[in-house]
């Protein structure tokens, strides 16, 4: 119950932030990367603001013995930079550059009634499921 409420509040802050910052609009994303067109610096400022708060906030969190509504912190433990990380990130970057939507903004814009964002988000769910299939098929091969 408490975990649900705190997750909802975190989502609210994040969703308002995406709208206020202009990141729910792919035009701002494309504009940032289009350095040979009309450059739009918005994304850099959003990242700067987000990183400042998260860097300081995480330092405070991790000094505490644990989170408020859960037993322990669940942090990614991997340190290996492997081909899966780089290939996946490259595929993600290709899709991001084609339309200017990444997962958060796609959901926010779709909820706001943007039909193109809803189409994008549906295809994105398909892509996520497709990766899951690849993972399951691989696990099965390893298990057999």
């Amino acid at each position: 119950m408490r975990q649900g409420l705190s997750s909802y509040i975190a989502g609210l802050l994040f969703g308002v932030g995406l709208i206020v910052s202009g990141m729910a609009d792919p035009a701002n994303v494309i504009g940032f990367f289009d350095v040979f067109g009309t450059w739009n610096p918005t994304l850099a400022l959003v990242m700067a603001g987000g990183l400042a708060v998260t860097f300081l906030g995480y330092r405070y969190c991790l000094k505490r013995s644990g989170p408020l509504c859960a037993a322990t912190y669940q942090l990614p433990g991997g340190t290996r930079i492997d081909s899966r990380l780089i290939t996946g990130s490259a595929i993600f970057g290709l899709g991001w550059g084609l339309a200017g939507y990444c997962p958060g903004p796609a959901f926010v814009a779709a909820a706001g009634g943007m039909v193109e964002a809803a189409a994008f988000a549906s295809a994105m769910l398909g892509g996520m499921l497709a990766w899951r299939m690849v993972e399951l098929a691989r696990d099965q091969r390893v298990g057999a």
Binding site: R84, I91, G126
Partner: peptide
């Protein structure tokens, strides 16, 4: 196509 790539790539790249 972009949506599919974003979904697949972001899961693959964690």
């Amino acid at each position: 196509v972009a949506g599919f790539l974003v979904g697949f790539g972001s899961r693959m790249g964690n």
